[in-house]
């Protein structure tokens, strides 16, 4: 979850009477970098409400924001054991180091896509519907 992503949620009575205001909350377009910005957006439209992150909005039953939660979901860190479990369960494993380093040593079942080749073309070998795990040399 990207902690920078915030939204302004009008109070329920405002929500129910302002369809068009709600529509304006198109996912991705009304995410704010900080709480002050979000609040000003609400103030400018004369709405009472409060600032929250999309995950909370989603929990409150605003199903539209479930997509946003997904949209701003950040890559998750995984450890060695997690990696072994996920690869055994079918996750795709990608080494992003230069190809020469991959040739010397790589994890079993890893494929090589050097960082510079990760683009729409390079990613075609990957299945978007399955989990992907990337790694390089270390965290430095």
């Amino acid at each position: 979850m990207n902690s920078d992503a915030l939204l302004f949620r009008p109070d329920d009575e405002v929500m129910s009477c302002c369809e068009n205001v709600y529509e304006e909350w198109c996912p991705n377009s009304k995410l704010f970098g900080d709480a002050g910005q979000a609040r000003r957006w609400g103030d400018q439209r004369g709405m009472s409400g409060r600032v929250m992150d999309p995950a909370e909005a989603s929990r409150l039953g605003m199903s539209d924001w479930a997509d946003v939660v997904q949209e701003v979901a950040m890559p998750k860190e995984i450890d060695r054991e997690g990696l072994r479990r996920m690869v055994a369960a079918g996750a795709q494993l990608v080494e992003v180091l230069p190809a020469e380093e991959y040739a010397e040593d790589h994890l079993p079942q890893a494929i090589s896509i050097p960082l510079r080749h990760i683009d729409a073309e390079g990613a075609k070998v990957l299945d978007k519907d399955r989990a992907v795990i990337v790694y390089c040399w270390d965290s430095a």
Partner: peptide, 25 residues
């Protein structure tokens, strides 16, 4: 390097991306 790779994949529409940050070492 791998965080950038992970984010790049997110930007390409991958929804379920993991970063083995401690890596090959």
């Amino acid at each position: 390097m791998s965080p950038r790779a992970a984010w790049r994949l997110e930007s390409l529409g991958f929804r379920d991306v993991y970063d083995y940050t401690v890596g090959k070492l």
